[in-house]
Design a protein around this nucleic acid. Structure first.
Lengths: 248, 248
DNA sequence: ATTATTATTATCAAATTGATAATAACTCTA
DNA sequence: TAGAGTTATTATCAATTTGATAATAATAAT
């Protein structure tokens, strides 16, 4: 078998079969829609751009995918680098959102970005502060529901919109909302997450009745303002039947 | 304003700010999971590879994203080129699935692929035949549920798995299944789509009761083997409350 | 004409829902 | 320390929805 010398003709036939005149290398990046619930308000991590284009505008954190990593690994790495978060000491959840590839989305060159949704667990409503990343950009938590999304840099407003829809939608039929809380949490804290994301108040009694089958009680109780509440962990990733998101 | 000469320093600072040592150009492709229901059986379009690697294996249709098109446009173009389908004369639905970027997914070079789900409408259980594409690869409809997915080329088995999960999942809460049928269809035909995708028989009476609010009757009736059935169009993209997919 | 097949509507007990209240266990404040 | 206020959890119940099954009707096949 000719193992040594078929590498080159192989790649040549590969390119030929795919019509090389249509082939152009692109830069691959990741963009991160990082959510956290601070004091019952849904926030997103944004960086202020320190260079043209969109100098001074808010943008999503992100960066290039390296030659030896996939997009998911790049998302984890950039999360640390751009926000200063120590992933070893925080609960984070990352999932791919969608890829944005319009030829003109970056005015400088062909940049294709794989957007990700990141959920950062808050402890008692407190979220770790963000530090300026490896580039000088200023990073900050910003409330999402009062944000002027069209003012974001590039197509980041549309990415954020899709990220919010993904989070809100998946919270109907999965326990993904618990990723915004510590591993052990009260049902009320989870209900506060739903209120922050869906922007509605859910009746406590019925919420407990419907979410309970997806949770596992630890038996431990914690003191709050009123009666003590049990701590739960996620028992199932699925909520069946799904919670109905009240639509206006 | 220095519009003319800040292009170069701008791009330089862009690259610098993103750590250029981690930057590597990649080839961007699309892969297509093309579904159609033939005679009540869910099929997928596959091409037989005519070159190394994976010579002779089944693979998903796909190809490079051109310099002036986004991934969605490339998906439409490659669908025509690789399967010989005339998009002007068939109902097709295309939506992005996910992006696959593992460094080793193609042994020849760094290829990042944006996978798409494509739904092709069958007319009376008949699906247009596939022709060999612009490259010599042989294209064919293959029943999905009896397919040895791990035997597919590259990571196409995993892409197919995610595509099937997307289709089956979205059919719980949207009328996307109707995209596998002509614009006007009977409730029974739609139920057959659900049976083909979910691999379960759904009771006819209850299915009608639950799907009806999402459909619009045309008033026209068609003759089949039994009683005449009304033709419907999609009235709403959403099914609320969702249909419960029976799980084993 | 009779039988078989299918679409559609109907029926009904069981399960689920939304709304509301009851109860219990705590903190806060005077 | 005795209310008053707050919250978690369970309970209640009428209204709605569900799954199962049947009834009805309209056609083709024999």
């Amino acid at each position: 078998m000719n193992t040594m010398n078929n590498q080159m003709p192989d790649e040549a036939s590969f390119l030929a079969s795919y019509n090389p005149s249509n082939f152009l290398p692109v830069a691959l990046t990741v963009d991160l829609v990082v959510f956290a619930v601070r004091h019952k308000v849904l926030h997103i991590a944004l960086v202020k751009r320190g260079a043209h284009p969109f100098l001074g505008s808010w943008a999503l954190p992100g960066g290039f995918v390296g030659p030896t990593e996939n997009a998911l690994a790049a998302a984890h790495r950039e999360l640390e680098e751009e926000t200063g978060l120590n992933l070893g000491s925080h609960r984070v959840f990352v999932e791919q959102l969608a890829t944005f590839s319009d030829p003109g989305r970056d005015p400088r060159m062909r940049v294709v970005s794989v957007a990700h949704v990141v959920l950062l667990a808050a402890e008692g409503g407190i979220v770790p502060p963000l530090c300026a990343g490896s580039d000088a950009a200023h990073a900050q938590w910003v409330p999402v529901h009062t944000l002027d999304t069209p003012a974001l840099a590039f197509d980041h407003g549309e990415i954020l919109r899709q990220g919010m829809e993904r989070l809100a939608g998946k919270m109907e039929y999965t326990t993904i909302g618990a990723r915004l809380l510590p591993a052990q949490f009260t049902i009320s804290a989870l209900r506060d997450v739903y209120s922050a994301v869906w922007q509605v108040e859910l009746p406590a009694g019925n919420f407990t009745r419907k979410i309970r089958p997806s949770l596992t009680s630890t038996g431990v109780k914690v003191q709050g303002v009123g009666a003590p509440a049990s701590l739960f962990t996620v028992g199932s990733d699925w909520i069946s039947p799904p919670l109905a998101r009240p639509r206006r």
